[in-house]
Design a protein around this nucleic acid. Structure first.
Lengths: 255, 255
DNA sequence: CGGGTGCTTGAGCTGTATCAACGTCTGTGG
DNA sequence: CCACAGACGTTGATACAGCTCAAGCACCCG
């Protein structure tokens, strides 16, 4: 079977149109109806710069109190282990904050890496705090981001602790699809996915070898295809059941 | 070998002296030096009430936008799976917030249960937000709590994804000891631990049977003893190496 | 005294890891 | 334009950590 041109994946996502470039704005604007609030958010969007694929933005245990807004491309946060392995904690997609934690912990205990070429803007702790002083709604918006990040990580914890490789993979890929759909980068059955099998394995606590076998199984049963930098959900209903997927943990409470 | 009287463990911790009862205050006071700030925090401490062991405080998917400050006793948050199993996300100790997330997500997607008899006070979303409006330092204090919670969960994720049962257990019990020591409920080599083996197993993504065997191994090597509601770290240095334990992810950045 | 809860141990099985080899595509430099 | 190096993906053989099923024990509480 043909495999995707891995080295070119970064570029696929980098050629983004303006619709996607404001994922962050669209996501948080509903929390910020007034002019003043909008301008505070605009600060978060200024000073964009590009970072190229493979670059480490925050190095583990090198205390760097800075976070980012990710405008375009994919990133991930992870921890390395003494035996050389690594565990990916979370994948960040356009519109997400990156490294919010590291603003408040002594050591930003996670590393962050660009998985594709990427566009980000920096956010400092003081920017963050002063935006929150300005309006309760912005406070809510930021707390929601924190809560959602934790909910995602908690869900991954359940995946690793209590689900088989099969269920994990299905759950993870459904979650990615759902999150990409929120920022209009996915259809219900398909999305571009620049992750290598090794990377997916690092996220799911598996060997890339075993991951490969389970992906084959999923393909043969015509449940999903992960190939050529693209994910196709052939039988969404069956996958959802297999993975026990319920996206409500991703949604904000907007009361 | 003798096992601890499980049913009486709840009471052990409940007979708490006043020193421990202000774990929350001591922990957050350093963020709140002024009178006004202290009084805002005092709100979080008022209206205490007791909850007895085994009681579920927040039920999964039953949207209850309320969080708690845990003053005394142990709690845990977890998710149930369709096959009846469960995964514990985090253990809450005196001084911790409980269910901060559920204030901002549509469904409090986790359940929360009292592991011992417990004393808590409720915190509403509006209380939270208005305290944060009042002072940047309180904002920092709350954000730090969020960040720390996520750091703990991320660390557990690494445990489940990439460490052997042995390493996981050692890491988890060292972390508990460290956190208890922060609120003066542990000495460097010993602490009271009301968790059953089944519960520990649910936290670590293991079977209680396998957990039991590894605990025996740890006991036979004279590394640690988990028994009779108490944990004794017999050879802390060896455990730290075994678990690759580095507590810096638990510490606040107080710049 | 009887039943529940938690702990312990054994025997056998299975999901996932490890080790090893090979294929395929991409980008690079002669 | 070809040769090569380097990622990434695929497959097979084998080993082992951790699971399942099953049984029994110790203690507590009603």
């Amino acid at each position: 079977m043909k495999q995707g041109p891995a080295a070119s994946r970064g570029k696929q996502l980098h050629t983004t149109n303006s619709r996607q470039a404001d994922a962050f704005a669209r996501r948080l604007d509903r929390f910020a109806p007034t002019i003043a609030e909008k301008s505070a958010l605009a600060d978060f969007r200024s000073a964009r710069h590009a970072v190229s694929r493979r670059k480490e933005l925050v190095h583990e245990s090198h205390s760097a109190p800075v976070a980012y807004v990710l405008h375009d491309g994919w990133m991930c946060s992870y921890k390395r282990l003494p035996d050389g392995g690594r565990q990916i904690i979370n994948i960040q997609l356009p519109g997400d904050f990156v490294g919010l934690n590291s603003l408040f912990l002594q050591t930003s205990d996670q590393s962050v890496e660009a998985l594709t070429d990427v566009v980000v803007s920096e956010v400092s702790r003081s920017q963050m705090i002063s935006a929150m002083q300005q309006s309760p709604r912005l406070t809510e918006a930021v707390l929601w981001s924190f809560a959602r990040d934790e909910a995602i990580v908690a869900q991954h914890l359940v995946n690793l602790g209590r689900r088989s490789a099969l269920g994990r993979i299905a759950h993870f890929l459904l979650e990615l699809g759902y999150r990409l759909n929120e920022v209009e980068l996915a259809t219900p059955t398909r999305y571009e996915c620049p992750l290598s099998q090794q990377l997916l394995a690092d996220a799911l606590g598996l060997t890339s070898i075993h991951l490969n076998r389970v992906l084959r199984y999923l393909r043969e049963r015509e449940l999903l295809v992960f190939s050529a930098g693209r994910v196709e959900l052939l039988n969404r209903a069956a996958l959802i059941q297999l993975a026990d997927f319920d996206p409500s943990y991703l949604e904000a409470d907007t009361r």
